[in-house]
Amino acid sequence: MPESGTGLDVRGMIAKKRKSASIRTVVEKLVPRILFGIAAISVLTTIGILLTLLTETVIFFERVPFLDFFTGTKLKPLGEEAVFGVLPLLTGTLLSSAIAMVVAIPIGLMTAIFLSEYASEKLRRTLKPLLEILAGIPTIVYGFFAFTFVTPLLRSFIPGLEPTNILSPGIVMGIMIIPMVASLSEDAMSAVPNAMREGALALGATKLEVTLKVVVPAAISGIIASFVLGISRAIGETMIVAIASGSSKNFTFDVTQSMQTMTAYIVEVTGGEAAAGTTLYYSLYAVAMTLFVFTLVMNLVAQYISRKFREEY
């Protein structure tokens, strides 16, 4: 480049800067290492938690036989003759999650279908943020809502319903999960290219046929993912069940009765009585481990299903 009339010497300035290039290379080399270290924090924490869970669980199973724990229908963690059977907690967790999904899946999916396929652009833009606000309500509020509103309401037409029961928190958990299922499913359906809808419409399909036979199948992996996140959320949900379903360790399938979930058990036990080193204390870890395995299996199953049904486009 010939020197310009303005007296600007860009090349000269760059050459001068080059001399300090060594700092640049050092920074370039350091940054990825620092970032790696930061990224490792979360992974290491997870590994740490897992290891603690595992070692404490092993100690628990040295005191309580493995089979007794998983097949025991009696859970009496306190007193002289403590019995540790996890089945009452398992049924509590499974029943409440099942009730939640029975509420959340159809309502969430239908909401998503309405928003993605039928609502006008304007309506969608108002409703979706509202849904997301609903998803941000603290769960303690839902728990309170279940205990003081839904249960009394249900009792007016289910006379046998106990003041604390698994039905009411199950329903309320479902309501809590609806926005999540609806919002994620809607994202998946909106991502289906319009060209596909047009292709089906051009064959004389009605709007409903397009939705059910083209859009939903094309978005199925995202929809299933939303269900699974919903289920995981329900399994891990603590506050609502702790408040509204009581703490009786019943082994029953009667949803009108009070039951305890795995999470609510952990809340109760950590609430005071468990001195470190007691079997009761270690039972916490065993239950937490079971909970963890549960959600893990859930996620693996979901991944498998969504891969199997994926319709690639």
């Binding site: 060209a195 596909m196 292709g199 004389g204």
Partner: peptide
């Protein structure tokens, strides 16, 4: 429209098969 489109097919600018 469904009757009309059952008789009148359409092929689009970009191929748009269903993901099936």
């Amino acid at each position: 429209v469904e009757d009309l489109r059952t008789n009148v097919g359409m092929v689009f600018q970009k191929p748009n098969p269903f993901p099936k």
